[in-house]
Design a protein around this nucleic acid. Structure first.
Lengths: 158, 158
DNA sequence: ATATATGCAAAACTTTTGCATACAA
DNA sequence: TTGTATGCAAAAGTTTTGCATATAT
């Protein structure tokens, strides 16, 4: 899929975001290392959730696989990254929504690519839905995820 | 999570559903075997998506692991089951939405349980959102998924 | 100086596959 | 009867972990 909507291209240039990341690192007792900075920059630069092999490819052998997994795990635990799965058999990772922007995913069932979209005009309805769930079932909703599946424009052309 | 909403408890008792399943089996060139019937009944009886270990547990050693995976794979390919992942590191499976009913998921971040909910009153908004995506990005949406994350009522009690 | 992070190698877990046999149509 | 499905064993892919060394604070 072509990156339909690139979300906050330079989040890591935004001092407020960097400050909040540092706050979360500190709260989790994590040190600010080269490997963590590299991984974070790589995830933040991507227009859509990244898989471990994709990050490995982007980063190079600087960060070996096991360290990559460990770094990612730490960043997820610190609530800086979020782990996603799209029934591909492996996980993808993106910046936590409070650090980036709330958005949804377009998953192409033909080529497997994942892109991001923002749908501001529907967030109200989604919030209402969450409240309804909570009232009706007692389940305390803290966040939601809306993904669309279909065929991306690139695949449709062929 | 307590099964918040049990969807069509006896789908496999509904002759129309059974007929449609048989149609899809035939279309995919699949034979009606004991293993497939067993797996299908087990998935259909569950109030929420099931993992392979859960199915193994429910079914017993009648169907060995490799066959279980193969049966599930065949049923997914025949569009009778759908494969889902909730960032748990493994897949879950449920009846295809055309065979059951369109619904959404409640994922407890405390205990990991998954429950189903129907939200009829919001389907219109979701359909509108899908149309908006399509118009704005060229991505041809064929289905959507809405999951809620939070704490189930059981976990909240403790 | 000291506790945390990394790198390497080995392992764990989920899922897939090759091949001989059993079974559905 | 004939091709498909199953069972077993082995393998592949993804992710985790033990332990010695390197590094951030």
């Amino acid at each position: 899929v072509s990156p339909v909507v690139a979300l906050r291209p330079g989040v890591l240039q935004d001092p407020a975001v960097v400050t909040e990341i540092e706050r979360r690192m500190a709260r989790a007792g994590l040190r600010w290392t080269r490997a963590r900075r590299t991984v974070l920059e790589s995830v933040a630069a991507a227009p859509a959730p990244r898989s471990v092999p994709e990050l490995q490819e982007a980063i190079g052998r600087d960060v070996p696989l096991s360290s990559l997994y460990r770094v990612i795990g730490d960043l997820v635990a610190a609530r800086i990254l979020i782990k996603l799965e799209f029934a591909e058999g492996f996980a993808r990772f993106e910046l936590d929504e409070e650090l980036a922007a709330h958005h949804h995913h377009l998953v192409c069932t033909r080529c497997g690519a994942v892109a991001d979209v923002e749908l501001h005009e529907f967030e109200g309805a989604l919030t209402d839905a969450a409240r309804t769930v909570q009232r009706r079932t007692g389940f305390a909703v803290s966040m939601h995820r809306l993904d669309f599946f279909g065929v991306c424009s690139t695949c449709a052309r062929d």
